[in-house]
């Protein structure tokens, strides 16, 4: 049941990315190119997504627990720390270089663009590095103390 609902939700998410145009890197780059022939459509996508999710979350959280699970799983960190800032800065640089972020890149995998597959391979490598290095560093710090 959990997988069926996730499939449905992923489908809806992918339809949103496709219909909004976010799946196309040239459109994302045109949005980021504020000093050029600026394309404001991503701003509309973000605003529309935020209005729906802001009010929708309030309805969702009015229940004690999710429909299919025992509890809501929410991030527990509240502090704005160095990894958050550095990581997000690097992500933005990569987004500007490629015109792709993880959602659209995965959605576009069904459309047969070779550049997208190169991006996806690099994305997976980067994620493994990103998950591996902080843990290795934590292990080392632990060993030292």
């Amino acid at each position: 049941m959990r997988a069926i609902s996730a499939l449905f939700v992923g489908l809806l998410f992918g339809l949103g990315l496709t219909i909004s145009g976010m799946i196309d890197p040239s459109k994302i780059i045109a949005f980021l190119d504020v000093a050029g022939d600026w394309d404001p459509s991503l701003l509309v996508v973000m605003a529309s997504a935020l209005v729906v999710s802001f009010f929708g979350y309030r309805i969702a959280f009015a229940r004690k627990k999710p429909v299919l699970e025992e509890k809501f799983q929410l991030p527990t960190k509240t502090e704005i720390d160095r990894p958050l800032i550095i990581g997000s800065a690097l992500f933005g640089i990569g987004w500007g270089l490629s015109g792709l972020c993880p959602g659209p890149a995965i959605s576009a995998a069904s459309l047969g663009n070779g550049d997208v597959y190169v991006f996806l391979l690099a994305l997976a490598s980067g994620m493994l590095l990103g998950d591996g290095l902080p843990k290795a560093a934590a292990k080392q710090a632990k060993a030292r103390s």
């Binding site: 996508v45 529309s48 997504a49 999710s53 309805i59 999710p66 699970e69």
Partner: peptide, 23 residues
């Protein structure tokens, strides 16, 4: 397109939380 697509993205965020309790 962007307005409807954005709304679908927002809706899926809400549904994954309401049903599966996930971000």
């Amino acid at each position: 397109g962007p307005a409807i697509g954005g709304a679908l993205i927002g809706l899926s965020a809400v549904l994954l939380m309401a049903l599966n309790g996930r971000i």
